[in-house]
Amino acid sequence: MGGPELERLIALFGKLPGLGPRSARRIVLKLLRERETRLLPLAEALRAAAETVRTCSVCGNLDTSDPCTICAAPDREPKICVVESVADLWALERALIYRGAYHVLGGSLSALAGRGPEDLAIASLLARLREAPPAEIILALPATVEGAATGHYLVEKLKPLGIPVSRLAQGVPMGGALEVLDEGTLATALAARRSA
């Protein structure tokens, strides 16, 4: 086979979600066969993203500006949707049903993984809510044991603030991650949310 550069490239692609060694080899082969139209533009796009994309200091989204374009938009509704990951935020944005602000926790509480409240962006959420209380907080967490535990913990922390809290309702299956759901299911779940 190829030299260490090729093996390193294949290994890096193979670490991406959904790709194994065989898929990684096919991708690398395709990129190398079409250097000018695929490999070089991809390399440039990756370099540019590495240099310009940053985490929003307000909500935790990824964008080229800080605050991100969602946080900076003056026409967003005065609501905050709390999500586990940036992938969940992007999934809700794709659904085109929610027009409020977001807050990315960066994970869920998990005793097995050793992830406690201090490992998530909960303190920054509480500080943000005290500074500028929204009309509503929507907990859009995965329908998993960890998501439920995180939701219960947040409801207890949010009660003293007196801000209405709701959760996603029907449409999100148990064990389902928001980032893999279709837009229709997400729209239904968001529209039918219930009080926490």
Rank of each mutant, 00 (worst) to 15 (best):
G3A: 12
P4H: 13
L6S: 06
I10L: 14
I10K: 06
A11G: 15
A11E: 14
F13D: 04
F13G: 07
K15E: 15
G18R: 09
L19C: 09
S23W: 04
A24W: 04
I27F: 12
I27V: 13
L29Y: 12
K30I: 02
K30S: 12
L31E: 07
R33I: 05
E34P: 00
E36P: 03
E36Q: 12
T37R: 15
T37C: 00
L40P: 00
A43F: 07
A43N: 04
E44N: 10
E44P: 01
A45N: 12
A45Y: 01
A50R: 13
V53W: 02
R54N: 02
R54T: 13
R54W: 01
T55W: 03
P67C: 06
I70S: 06
C71K: 11
C71Q: 06
P74L: 11
E77C: 04
P78T: 10
P78S: 13
V83D: 07
V83L: 10
V83I: 11
V83K: 09
S85T: 14
V86P: 02
D88W: 13
A91K: 03
A91F: 05
I97K: 02
I97R: 08
R99I: 04
A101W: 02
H103P: 09
H103C: 06
V104Q: 12
L105M: 11
L105V: 09
L105G: 09
G107I: 14
S108N: 15
L109G: 14
S110H: 08
A113C: 04
G114S: 13
P117K: 12
P117W: 10
E118N: 13
E118C: 06
D119C: 11
D119T: 15
L120C: 12
S124F: 02
S124P: 10
S124H: 04
L126C: 07
L126F: 06
E131D: 09
E131Q: 14
P133Y: 07
I137Q: 05
I138R: 00
I138Q: 00
L139G: 08
T144Y: 04
G147Q: 12
A149H: 12
A149Q: 10
V155C: 15
K157A: 14
K159A: 14
P160H: 08
I163Q: 11
S166G: 07
Q170A: 04
M174C: 00
G175T: 07
G175H: 09
L178D: 03
L178P: 05
E179P: 06
E179G: 06
E183H: 09
L186M: 05
A187G: 13
A189H: 01
A189W: 01
R194G: 05
A196Q: 00
